[in-house]
Amino acid sequence: MAVKKFMYVNRKAPYGTVYALESLEVVLIAAAFEQEVTLAFLDDGVYQIVRNQNPKLLGMKNFSSTYKALGDYDIKQLYVERESLIERGLTEDDLMDITYEDEGDDWAEKSSLTIVSRAEMAALMAAQDVMFSF
């Protein structure tokens, strides 16, 4: 089977609804299919990857730690929309460090996050084969 470009589009904040957690679980399961996977974070989806989340106070699992395991699953392309951050009073510094180890570069640790403009995000979407919306 030819490799296809899969994009998971995340537009919801975590905890208030189950979208974010469901998306993450689907991503982890589908990682076994070895397709080219991209995650997009826009609108309230950017809240999924902010630092210092502590949902234990709500009796919920802190699944934000799990985004840091994505590199182990060969998911290294996480795109975050700049306008969505700005609209919410956030900057890149509010985001967690999410990294992967580059096999082709002596396992150097590199950031998986790329901040893109809204126009760049639109172009990324247009370039996909399959979209999963959450």
Binding site: R11, L42, D43, R118, M121, A122, A123, M125, A126
Partner: peptide
């Protein structure tokens, strides 16, 4: 919700 606005600002020409 902003779904429509977000959609329209990410749709490409010809979509």
């Amino acid at each position: 919700r902003n779904a429509l606005a977000s959609c329209l600002s990410h749709a490409s020409k010809g979509d």
